[in-house]
Every structure is written in C-alpha cells, then in structure tokens.
Design a protein around this nucleic acid. Sequence first.
DNA 1: CATGGGATTGACT
DNA 2: GTCAATCCCATGC
Length: 207
Amino acid sequence: MSLGAEFYERAVLDVARELIGCVVEHEGLAGMIVETEAYHESEPACHAFAGITPRTRVLFGEPGGAYVYRSYGIHALLNAVCEPAGVGAAVLIRALEPLTGIEEMRARREQASVRRGCLRDEDLCSGPGKLTQALGIELRHNETSLLDGPLAIRPGRGHPPEVVVGTRIGIAKAVELDWRFCAAGSPHVSRPRPRGVASRVREWDLS
DNA sequence: CATGGGATTGACT
DNA sequence: GTCAATCCCATGC
C-alpha cells in the first residue's frame, strides 16, 4: 500500500527525513530510498521560490503529487510534493538502494554508458538522474499521483535506517541549510557523502 | 521572440 | 581536477 496524502501533507523536512527507508516502485522495479533533499518555497534554491508558473504549479498542488523535471537538458529528477495544497514544497529523491529488478536496472543504465558490463549495484541508483533512468521514470510522470499512479512510494520493512544530515548538493543558493538526509553508512548514497556516511576503512586495511 | 541558466552525469586531462 | 551534452522554461526586450 502506498503512503497516503496525510504522510506528504506535513512539514517538508519531516517528510524528507522519514522517506529514508521507504521504497520507490515503478513497473515492478523497486529500490529503498537512501538519500533525499527538502525544498520549500521560502528559500531560493526551491523552484517554487519563483511563485506559481506553468512549471511550478504542481509544487503548489496536492501533497503526494510527483514533480518530475528535466535537469541540465538530460536528466529527469523525481520529487514528491509535500505540505498542504497552496504551499510550494517537495522532497527530491536523490538515491536508492536497488531491491527488485536489479538486472533490468543495470540494462537500462548500461544503454547510455560507454563502458558496458562494469556497473556495480552501487552505480545503478546513486544519484537523482541515475535512479530515474534505472526505473524508467520520465517527464511524462510529472503531475501524476504517488498515491495511486504509475509511480508508488511504500513504507519500508523493518526498522528505518539511521539518518545522517548534511547540506544540499549542486545548488548555488541557500547552500547553508542542512536539508539533505542520508541513510548512515549506505554505499548507495551519491557523492559527495556527508560526514558519517563515508565508507569506513578497517584498521587492517591500513598498512 | 531571444537568451541564459541549471536540484547532473560521464568522459577525459 | 575540468568540461561538454542538451532541453525546458523563466525572464526580459
């Protein structure tokens, strides 16, 4: 069962943190969310900061909507619209740990890669553009519903991962906000990793 | 209508 | 470390 509107209709920082450990699913392909970022109309890094435009209206729409936009002319980035309708806010899904359909994900990712057959599991969904490519998420999913649409986000199983907080990636404004959330220790988080997520070097590896 | 700038990635020096 | 690819849309004339 997908997360309901009441899950998304809350403070975007709470949603971003609690989405860590949840599962994104599309066409039978699924991965656990290990990295998110929060965006809110009150700060200039958020697309909704510009107000309601044809591009941003979905951000001000019903919580639980999907905001998918093209980045750098190439990549589709997936966001979950949050907060009550009328407030422009969303959580950017930045990385997944692949769970189901891993070989299908690898095939989709290697289509665009020059080096084939070399992609590790950690290379499949460790970035916002990578995960949409791996799961087949495209611009046509913009303004669809995460509650009952082709894209679904479900609660995770077991206890949720420990979460590490850091600053957001790849933005020029409001860079100081600690609005990035990562599953502690996960090798599927994108780079650069915040402190506390860096892979540990065992002592016997040093010499 | 023309222009400019990205919530990135992969390849290369 | 640097750099180009490439499309949508916000902005300004």
